[in-house]
Each structure stands twice: as C-alpha cells, then as structure tokens.
Design a protein around this nucleic acid. Structure first.
Lengths: 241, 241
DNA sequence: CGAGATTTTGAATTGGGTCAAGTTATGTGG
DNA sequence: CCACATAACTTGACCCAATTCAAAATCTCG
C-alpha cells in the first residue's frame, strides 16, 4: 500500500506541507515563505475511519492533507447521506465551515492520513499581508465552487455509466498530477461511498464497473483499477445518449 | 434543511447596493463605509434574457444584484445544460470565475435587473485594509460552497417531489428574508429551468406541481404560486420514502 | 481459519423519462 | 386593444434505466 506522494505545487520540500494547495505559482520572498512556514506548526495523524472533524464542530482551522485521503459527507437527519467529495494529498479541506464558523459536514479518513492544521485567523492575517496568498486563497475557494457545480451537472444530467466514467477520469487526472500512474490505482472508497457521491446505489456502481470491464475499457478487481482505454472512457461522455 | 437559508444584511438603504450581501453585520467606520461606497460606481441594467456574463468571458468583477433575478447555467458541449442556481436581489454573482479568471458559467437575466459591478481587484485591496470585509467575503464564498453541497444532497438522494418541495421552501425563505410574502409569489423561471436545476424533466416538475395542488399543499397557476401548507411541504421531506 | 463486511449478479419492480396531443399564456404587429 | 402566432404548460400512455430485493461469491482481518 504505497502512500500517495504529496507532490502538488510543492516548491519547498515540505517542512511546510501546509503550503500544498496554498503554495503560489508566483514566487514569494524568503521572508514571506518563512511566515507561511510558521503558519502551520501542528501536524496530526489519522487512522482509517477517524474523523478529521464532524458536522457541528466549531471551526478554527483549515487542513492541508499531507498524505492519505478523506471523504466528506453530509448526514441528513432522516438517515440520508451524501458524500460530497473525496480529498487527497495536497488538497485543502474545511472550506465549508467558514460560512458559519461551524463545520457543515463530516470529514472521515479513508486510510492512514497526515494533515497540517492551518489556523484560519492566522491565514487571514497573513493573506492581508501577502496579496499573492490572498488571491490564492480566493482561487482555492472558487475552485471548490466550480468543482461542486461540475458535480451538480453530473448528478443532474448524466446517466449511471457516464457518472462513473467521469469519476474514474477525474481520479486518473488527480493521480497523474501527483506523479502517480493515471491508469493503475487503488480505490480507497467502497462501492457504497462511490454510489453516494455519484447519486447511485452501490449495485448500480458495481454493474457499471462490470460493464466497463466487459467493454475492455478497464480491468477492475474490487478496489484495484486499471484503465485500459482512457479515450474510450472519455467517449462514454460524448454519446449524447 | 437541505438548502441553508441565505442571510442578507441589507441595512444601508442602497446608495451602495453593492454592499448588499457584502455588508457586514458588525459596523464599519464611516471612513470604511465611504471606501466601500466608492467600490462600485457602475450600475448596469438588463432586460429579460440578457446575459450578465457568458462562460469564457474574462473575469474582472463580481456583481451585486440590486433588483431582479438571474439564473446561472453550465452548457456542456454535447448540449446538456444544467442550471446551477437562481440568484435574487442582494446576492453576489460571479464567484466561480475567480478560480481561473474566466467565467465558468452563463448568467442570464430572468426579468428586468439592475446590478452593481464590483471590480474584484479593488474588492481584494479593500478587504486587505478592512478585516471585517475580508471575513465577510470569505463567508460569502463559503456559503456558496455549502449551498452547492446542499444541492448535491438534493440531486443525489431526493425524489422528484422532495426536490420540488425543497425548491419551494427555499424560495419562500428567500422572499421572506426580503420582506416579501413567504407564501405568495411569482416564479421567474420556466418549468424547464426548474427542471434543469432540480435534475428533472419539465413534465415531471409540472406533474409534481399538480400533485401538490391536489394534496392542497399549494395553489399553482402557471407561474403564480401560493403555499397553503408550509408544514405539509416540509413534511414531504421527512417521509423517508 | 473463520466471521463479518463488501462486492457481484440475477430477477422483479418502479419512478421518472419519453413521446404525443391538447390547452393556456404571452407577446407582437396591425 | 385585438388577433394571431409562438412559447410554455398540462396531462395521458407507454417505456426503460436504475432501484429493490435476494442470494451467492469474494475479500479482509483478527
């Protein structure tokens, strides 16, 4: 079980893993880098199924995922649950809580994880001092909005197999961005969790996997996935039913 | 409560309509208020079906809706479309574009509208000077994330009538927050647009309206809606199928 | 090794989609 | 202001993709 390497705009080695997604493309001065390094002194480890935070918790910090991956989910009182995202190394988690100072969802570790805590007060203070950081924080939040709207499109107007194809292609891209294989990877989440994320039942997810395999688009054995035909998966989406 | 109630702070009359959603709960100094007023000098009017911006446009400004309402939509190349939101007076529109400096969706006027333009550079500069403004901007962005995740829950795990009930209750709340009747209002969007937003076909939306009417939960005549039984609509959601 | 969890597969069911026809609004030009 | 054309909405009948229910296979981990 190789842990995903935390490579994502990391131009400083990683004393400041906190910088992960936050790290600016444009270079900061040494002094600015230093301040950014000081931002997150606390690193925490989590085992599979540990909660990073729970819905209702007081918000104090964002978290930069140093290694491992999480799911975020909303639990509706009537038992309905919706997985709202899967986050991996180099991504920032907790943005939903800024709105009310209370976390709006649960974040659960899907495997062993290490995260850096980014106290939000300090992050705001620093981003007043460093305009590039401010802009970057805004971009991260906006990116999350765009991502969510993409999922609305998926949930609102795609068929089961299209949804799974989008899901696999997205994972593929994200692994590639971390220097991992875009065509061979381990799923860290169950069929049930994938289904919840994609608005499908777990049986439907399983059937779609099986169908892709029979079409020779992928090889899948439980949580081991090999993409055989990226273009073919892509083509699933263009078949306007 | 799938869709969180938006909170509007319309305390200044509206020489600075720009402040609408941006206006801070905590009071700003006179000097700060003045700077905020200067932020938006440009007001623009739109007729029904005019575009406020289009997907692909260069991003320069956010917009505060002074009056009227808009829809935002993503158009997928294969013709699929998804309405991602309906925005009304006092709300800020355009947050998705910060991520790439390119607008990621279309914003279309649903009726006659007036908007205030908020140049984003200036807004960022000002929010470095005024921490309360900075925090408020962050809250607005985070609120949008939470809203979108609520819609993911709706699209991912609710049945047609539940979705429409959520939609009507959300409109009701938002009208109430503006001092309008929470039980009698005009829809500004077509069945097709509601359907796109809710991940349903227009016929399904129409049937759900008719069914609510036959259950005496609402009166509906095309775009005129009267809610007869708010609690009853709410109860639709708790019936865990 | 064995128990519980997860995944796969099959068969039957159904909620919402599709297609079609009729009705009611809306807006434009005369 | 009216007549007419067009767009929007409603309703019915039929259909199908995904869900539900069920059972067997496989995996995971103590």
């Amino acid at each position: 079980m190789p842990l995903p390497a935390p490579i994502y705009h990391l131009h400083s080695p990683c004393s400041s893993c906190n910088l992960a997604e936050l790290c600016l493309p444009a270079d900061l001065s040494a002094n600015e880098m230093h301040k950014l390094d000081e931002l997150s002194t606390v690193k925490r480890s989590f085992a599979r199924s540990d909660y990073l935070y729970r819905s209702g918790d007081k918000f104090r910090s964002l978290f930069a995922i140093h290694s491992g991956s999480f799911k975020t989910q909303i639990l509706h009182e009537d038992g309905r649950e919706q997985v709202t995202g899967f986050q991996m190394a180099g991504e920032i988690i907790g943005l939903d809580a800024i709105s009310t100072d209370i976390h709006a969802c649960d974040a659960v570790a899907l495997e062993s994880c290490v995260v850096c805590e980014l106290p939000f007060n300090k992050l705001e203070a620093l981003s007043r001092e460093i305009p590039l950081l401010q802009r970057h924080l805004h971009k991260i939040m906006s990116r999350e909005i765009v991502r969510d709207q993409g999922i609305m499109l998926l949930l609102g107007s795609m068929r089961a197999e299209e949804r799974l194809a989008v899901f696999l292609l997205n994972l593929s891209q994200r692994f590639a961005a971390r220097g991992l294989s875009p065509t061979q990877f381990q799923l860290r989440m169950s069929r049930q969790e994938i289904g919840s994320y994609l608005g499908l039942k777990l049986e439907t997810v399983s059937r779609a996997f099986s169908h892709f395999q029979s079409e020779r688009l992928i090889n899948v054995k439980v949580r081991t996935v090999e993409i055989l035909d990226l273009a073919g998966l892509q083509a699933c989406l263009n078949n306007t039913r």
